[in-house]
Every structure is written in structure tokens, then in C-alpha cells.
Amino acid sequence: MSVFRPGIDPAAHRRLQRIREGVIEWLLRGCAFAAVAGLVLIILFVFREALPILVNAETQKEASLAGFFATPLWQPVGDVPKYGLVPLLLGTFKVVLVAMLFATPLAVLAAVFSSEFASPRLREALKPVIEILAGIPSVVMGFFALIVLASWLQSVTGGTMRLNALNAGIALGLGVIPTIFTVAEDALRAVPKSYREASLALGASRWQTAWNVSLPAASAGVGAGVLLGLARAVGETMIVLMASGNAAITSVTVFDSVRTLSASIAAELAEVVMGSPHYSVLFFLGALLFTITFIINVAAGIFVDRLRRRLAGA
């Protein structure tokens, strides 16, 4: 705020103002860099703690990259610790696959309905309700799956294990729906009105317009939504920790209990001895998770970029 004070000549006043704005600009820049620096430091920390697996001979005697695939067992506590990553990778893959198969059609079709078919009043009601799902703490979702969903699924499927990949996957899917829905819906709404009007004017029905015009036009944004949902599903911890049973079984069926990368870190990190091979392995899992979600997020960013260019250039 600038206050003109009599007695100060306008040139000096302007100089003062320039200094003040310079200071403010530097402050803001500092805030932005602090946030980025914090993030970079965390990433560096995770990778540094995982490093002994690659370089420390003492650690490699117990846990090495080759050792991760030499055994199908994950038994980190014992006289001979076994760090087989196969059951954890397979478990993560199974849960995420179930979650995405469950969430993607539901979320995308809900987005199509909300943006193409729903009346403005219905849309105003629908959107916040679905987005409230994102506000449910994942521990609540996990508890629901542990107590209610698991019993219901067992009575339907007749599986031996109550807590399994299917149960955790569906609960995880519920957690992912709002992410996919929000991004997909925004992308569909961003499709210019002229596209739809042109399609309808050519005699296409509303369904034909939605399916053949709006959805393809927004496909990059919908894809980005699905990828962001995928990234969330891979990293989500609490739901799978509670609902999956956490047994590190190497099998392909979704009716077996599974142990995921994220749940292993959450369950074991609290009590490992700092600097031990087990500690390094858990940080290695963390670095692996980070790399996976980072790649997915970058891919989603590319999709969004492409959408923006297509809609702007068309």
C-alpha cells in the first residue's frame, strides 16, 4: 500500500516503492524455494538411507539387489532374514489392478454422466458428494473393509481367506474414485460447447455426442485422471494395511491375502534398528515407490499438456 506523504518528492517515493516490492518479491521467491528444497531434501534422505544396499558390502551380505529376487519369501525378522521382493511386488500389482478395474469405469462413467447428461441442479449435488469420498480418512475406509466388506465378500465368493487382494482392492478403488472423477469431469467440462452443438446439429443423439465427441476430445484429461488415481493407489497405505491381511504370499489369485510395498514399510519401520540391513531395505522400498509414482505423475502431466494444446489449437 502506498501512502503519499507531503514533503517527500515523488522520485524518492517511487524509489522506496521499488525497494519494497523487491523485498516482497524476494520473500515470495524464498517461500517457493523453501517448499521445493524441503521436498528435494526428503527425496535425498530416502535415497541416501537406501544406498547401503548398492554400496555397503556389510549390508549386501544380508540384502542385495540380486537377493531381492533369489527368494520368494519375505521374512525380515529371524536368524536368516529373507528379503524376497517378489511377493511384495506381486501383491502391490494385484491390489492396484483390482482397484483400477473397479474404480476406472465407475469414475469415468460418473464423470460422463455428470458433465453430459445431468441437469445443472443434479450436477451441483452430485459433484460435492463424490468429492466428499476423498475426504473420508483412509483409516476409516480400511476399517470398513476390515469389518464389513470382507465378511460380505466372503459370503459372496466363498473364499478361504477373509482378508485378500479383492477386498483391499475394492476398498482402495473407493478411495481412488474421487481423484479420477474430479480430473475427468473437469476435462469433459472443458470441451468447448461448440463441439457438442456441432454434433447435435448433425443429428447425433446425446449419447452418441458424449461417446464419440466429448469423451475422445477429453481423452487426454481422462487419461491423466486415471494415471493420478493409479499413482494414489500404488502409494496408499492405510487401506491396504488394514484390509489385505498382509501375508506375503507368492500367487496369482486375488482370493489370497497380499502384502504390499507401502504396507510393509508402515508395519515394519517403527521398530527396525536404524542403519541395519532391514532398515535400508525398507528405505529401498520407499525409493522404489517414489520412483513408480513419480513416473506415473510425469506421464499424467504430459497427458494434461497434450489436452490443453489440442483444445487450444483446434
Binding site: 519369501l73 519375505w74 521374512q75 525380515p76 525378522v77 529371524g78 536368524d79 529373507k82 511377493p87 481367506m161 482378508l163 494395511l241 488394514m242 491381511g245 498382509n246 501375508a247 506375503a248 504370499i249 507368492t250 491375502s257 502384502r259 508395519a267 515394519e268 517403527a270 521398530e271 527396525v272
Partner: peptide
């Protein structure tokens, strides 16, 4: 129980004689 729990260690030492649990044990918090 999870492998971070004292109960896990007690059971492993006193029942399994220090041997490994089956991978099919579902570990709960």
C-alpha cells in the same frame, strides 16, 4: 502379529523354536 511386535518374537522363539512362520500367516496390527 506384525514382525515388529514383541508377541511375534515370543511366539517365534517359544513355539516355532526360532524357525520361520509360514508366508500364509496374515499379520494384523
Amino acid at each position: 502379529r506384525e514382525n515388529s511386535s514383541g508377541t511375534y518374537v515370543f511366539f517365534k522363539d517359544n513355539v516355532l523354536g526360532g524357525r520361520d512362520f509360514s508366508p500364509r500367516v496374515q499379520t494384523l496390527p
